[in-house]
Design a binder for these strands. Structure first.
Lengths: 113, 113
DNA sequence: TGGATCGTCAACCGTTTGGTTGAATATGCA
DNA sequence: TGCATATTCAACCAAACGGTTGACGATCCA
């Protein structure tokens, strides 16, 4: 009944969760290490990770005591495709197209703070 | 202090608001006409439109009694660029690229229900 | 075995969200 | 003028959100 885009976009709406995704862009991380730079409890971060998991934006795998978090960009890509539907009626939209190519080919993309 | 992406993504998190954006893709609309297909009060739709406006996803212009709503895809594009930063380390991503082209050229794009 | 670490669960709390209703405001028109 | 239409405002509500704390289960290791 509920659109998976609901979960993806509401997961992305929180700055803490976007920061977590950016961290996971570098490498897979344990829950404790994800929580380390934030000024909030481990339990709070654990909840954020549940929300990211339910949205399909990350997966978590337990090895021993440690639960590893891994970025899953497919859900992001789905949402991105939905959004790009709104660019189609623009006259040319070369700007977005060039930026798409830049990030896609990794030429000099700067993936945000 | 608060990231504009907060407003954009939380605006997009609601299915009613995404449906409104899809309607505005066709043409500019008056508030009453936006509200017509939904099974909720006009006041509720009015609030949704405020949220979309605050996020920069639409603009509203009053002409006479009627307030016209117009899609503003720039905010969407910003968010889309942020998201595409997460696709860059993927091997090729031809799938998203092809769909980008399809919607961009308007060949047989189906911009969602 | 026992202690330290990893992570979640459960209960609680204040704020925000998404909806309602009825009144109010602003404009168009006869 | 007076009435109909278009839209928002204000008050209210239940549910969800984002955080806290403390207790708990699971795992490693000496």
């Amino acid at each position: 009944m509920s659109d998976p885009l609901d979960d993806v976009f509401s997961a992305l709406a929180d700055p803490t969760r976007r920061a977590i995704l950016a961290m996971l862009l570098e490498d897979d991380m344990a829950v404790t290490d994800v929580a380390e730079p934030f000024e909030m409890s481990l339990a709070a971060i654990s909840k954020h990770l549940v929300i990211l998991t339910r949205a399909g934006l990350i997966t978590q795998e337990k090895r021993g005591r440690v639960k590893w978090c891994k970025l899953e960009p497919d859900a992001l890509r789905q949402a991105s495709v939905w959004m790009q539907g709104f660019g189609q009626f623009e006259p040319v939209n070369l700007d977005a197209f060039e930026r798409f190519l830049a990030t896609e080919l990794g030429e000099d993309a700067q993936p945000g703070g």
